[in-house]
Nucleic acid binder design. Structure first.
Lengths: 382, 382
DNA sequence: TCATAAAATGCATAGCTATGCAAAGTCAAG
DNA sequence: CTTGACTTTGCATAGCTATGCATTTTATGA
């Protein structure tokens, strides 16, 4: 049982992985040697590109187990073996694949993030925070861009097939069918800025209602008289902000709030404002569904009607996007507490993983912060 | 060989996957039946959560192959069998895992996108374009956020382990070691806005030099007399833009261009501008490494020095970010042709996959587009 | 030096799907 | 009713790693 049998096998591998220095005589002390590995994969076995642990084992003159152990932190390997293996691995350009491990453990350490788009920098930021957090905790992120909720439904089977350990959805809405399907698949889902819940679906949501109420308070206190709301698409976030705003105003005795239709985009805000400000009794206190919309409204107010902000009209938004604090806008807004929401969402996922069972969905409401800036900084009582 | 053996086995599975209706007698026509599947995995076999094709096969009373074929579009299955399988799969919440397929085919249809951050909306946009394109073509994207290039080097082994088919790096710089390591691993890499190349690394780069030259032409033609450049971090993109700008000005007879140090962020532009405009002979034509920097410089010029744009100072940027076209800025800039760069990068990857071999790196230079806006719209000859 | 404990190593296998191959069924034509 | 062509089905296996178990080697202590 000399090592020559190995050497013969090695020549096959050598061609493929340039392991010219493959012939080694490591039995200086007559140590136990692994039996020749009889994998009969030819050098051209169907587009085979990456070396396997067996290739490394051959080259290092050890068993496949030893290779595996050399790459497993706490495993039982001698220093010498580990060094041989690492050297061989480096030579072949080998890193152990995680796929078989996933197969065995049923834990992929993959998380799917489903998101509608990055037009809103706030979502880009949130996405980055999520991904960095997951990375730091040993999870990797698969991204899925999905335009509408119907498409999300369609994407679920695909996501399933990757055996992700969880799904973070920034789509806010989730159809009941989709929720059921995820439950059926036993994949925990966390909705960002959504409120659906079932056995496998949790939600983390900015307190949009309270945010809307805070803006109502501010605009009222600052002397607003004719109020308007520029809406976003029909989502929970939009409805809650609107209801909070209108509801609080009603409490303050303001019955008449004009609603304009926007779409969460700059252009939507601009167009809505164009219609709003064209009227005879134009509003002097406008709350917008998000910051992009608010910026659009501001630009329109200035460019098309020569209005001064906040003197002629006060404007407030939601999110606290990067550009909102830039001096040209200095937009009053409700900051969504991104890091806290991200942490809460990840915590919700982890809880599911630890519990193992479906524990019933939970809703975590994260308060926002009112950021007062110049766009509403009117002298009261003037 | 009746079906009772199966039924006995099924009860085990029934508990686990709620397949209460599992007992079926599908041998109405005495068809061939698969032998009882002897997988002795108990219901609590170590955190086993997801059903496998074998579970579905049991429930449907067919073989595992039949299940696989039922989910494979062109495969040879009778309609009846497929329906039975689909029904069983729905009942159990089953979708075939793609992991074993990856193991066998050595094609993961996974692509890693490595990116430094999303603070610049332009990168967020590019990222979205990439991901959508890949998705549309049957690939999924794994995201890796990496702060510095050293971290990229450290991340490569991790990326490797996912057996991605390719890497898109938006980091622009790539250390030689990292490039070598990717080559060693035989993973094709495409650098966005980088120019490194080796056997496995290609690059797609905006023509930054030409962009810088175009801005130089414009600012000179518009009557600029004292020129300045606010730099970004030390990247290829920055150097090229700077060199193009300075080089062209020199050709036009302008020797003296002041260089200020920025960092591609808003704040960097703001601070650099503060120093720049404090001097006695302040510049009247400033080119910034990117749009964020330019906006920072604009805000500073207005807020801290009361300068009018473009009358007192012209400012230009690079990227054409969303906010650059907003009226408050109306920033002249060089638009990077995002879609074309994305397509080129993906094409480069695909070419590698088709060729199979390392074909030597290629550099694709994509021209940008000068977008003239008000920030440089000075009346010439006034 | 020897016996015993500890460390290192190799073997065999689980985990899941796709697929080549052979066997069995189906159908049509003669 | 028989034969041959075609369709459908099941069996067995590749693909790669981690790990329990048994075995061999090394270290420790008397």
């Amino acid at each position: 049982m000399s090592v020559t049998g190995n050497a013969a096998n090695l020549s096959v591998c050598a061609l493929q992985f340039k392991a010219e220095t493959a012939v080694r005589q490591d039995n200086e002390n007559g140590r136990k040697q692994p039996a020749p590995i009889d994998t009969t994969t030819g050098p051209d076995g169907g587009g085979r590109l990456q070396p396997s642990s067996i290739d490394v084992a051959r080259l290092a003159g050890v068993s496949q187990s030893a290779v595996s152990r050399a790459f497993t932190p706490g495993a039982s390997v001698s220093k010498k073996t580990r060094e041989k293996v690492i050297a061989a691995a480096r030579e072949l350009g080998y890193q152990p694949s995680i796929l078989p491990r996933i197969l065995v453990t049923h834990r992929s350490h993959l998380v799917a993030i489903v998101i509608g788009g990055m037009y809103n920098p706030y979502y880009a930021k949130i996405f980055e925070q999520f991904t960095r957090q997951f990375q730091a905790q040993g999870y990797q992120v698969l991204v899925f861009f999905v335009d509408h909720n119907e498409y999300f439904d369609a994407a679920i089977p695909l996501i399933m097939r990757y055996r992700v350990d969880g799904i973070i959805s920034a789509l806010s809405i989730m159809s009941t069918e989709a929720a059921d399907e995820c439950a059926q698949m036993r994949i925990p889902v966390v909705l960002l800025n959504g409120r659906q819940q079932n056995k496998w679906v949790s939600a983390v949501c900015c307190d949009n209602v309270e945010g809307g109420r805070a803006v109502a308070n501010l605009l009222f206190q600052k002397g607003g008289t004719r109020f308007a709301y520029i809406a976003g698409n029909e989502t929970l976030a939009n409805t809650d902000r609107e209801q909070g705003f209108i509801g609080r105003l009603k409490e303050l005795g303001v019955e008449d709030v004009e609603i304009a239709k926007g779409n969460f985009h700059y252009e939507g805000g601009y167009e809505a404002a164009r219609a709003l400000f064209a009227k005879s009794n134009r509003p002097d206190a406008v709350f917008c569904a998000n910051d992009l919309t608010a910026i659009g409204a501001m630009e329109c107010a200035r460019a098309e009607y020569g209005l001064r902000i906040p003197d002629d009209v006060m404007i407030a938004g939601f999110d606290d996007a990067t550009f909102s604090s830039w001096p040209s806008y200095s937009l009053t807004t409700v900051r969504q507490n991104g890091p806290e929401m991200v942490d809460a969402a990840i915590a919700a996922l982890k809880q599911r993983w630890q519990e193992g069972t479906a524990s019933g969905g939970k809703l975590r409401l994260v308060p926002g912060t009112l950021c007062e800036r110049k766009s509403t900084d009117r002298q009261v009582g003037s």
